[in-house]
Write a protein that binds this DNA or RNA. Structure first.
Length: 147
DNA sequence: GCCAACGTTGGC
DNA sequence: GCCAACGTTGGC
């Protein structure tokens, strides 16, 4: 199997919270209108894992989501030029990792939330991904644990 | 192809 | 609710 890649996806909880994803079981990740974020969406493939960040309200990484299907055209987009993927919930973090905590952690100095605050879909290194799970006092359930 | 204006995001 | 950061648009 191909190596799992790690990502960070952001959503305002008032728009689509992680708890909503858990209720729905899966969702189509649409509405991205930034070229770089779109390119990242296109690089996602089924099985990749995403840290789920709540922006504006909450301001914390709250859960892990998994890419279910790779990028297709965004049905909500005005043209063919945009992409979306479908994602499903994996686990909610036992302890949400606040932005303030991320900022205080030297190992996360170049985490995309810190360096690229406004990028809504960003690649995350395996090292950062694991560290955030640790800060969130959370283990991945076995089916999601791939490499 | 540059760059100013504008709109949006998101932390505070 | 303000404002800084920054990406995109559009005029030249």
């Amino acid at each position: 199997m191909v190596k799992t890649q790690y990502w960070l996806i952001k959503s305002e909880p008032s728009v689509y919270a992680y708890a909503q994803l858990e209720r729905d079981g899966q969702t189509e990740w649409t509405g991205v209108r930034n070229f770089e974020a779109r390119n990242n969406l296109r690089a996602m493939k089924a099985g990749d894992l995403c840290l789920y960040y709540h922006s504006n309200e909450g301001k914390a990484v709250v859960g892990v989501a998994q890419v279910l299907t790779g990028a297709g055209p965004d049905p909500t987009a005005p043209s063919e030029d945009w992409a979306s993927v479908s994602v499903g919930p994996v686990v909610a973090l036992n302890t949400p990792v606040a932005l303030a905590t991320l900022k205080k952690t030297p190992a996360l100095k170049d985490f995309p939330l810190i360096t690229r605050g406004r990028l809504s879909v960003a690649a995350v290194t395996a090292k950062h991904f694991k560290l955030i799970l640790k800060l969130g006092e959370t283990m991945l359930p076995n089916p999601a644990q791939s490499s």
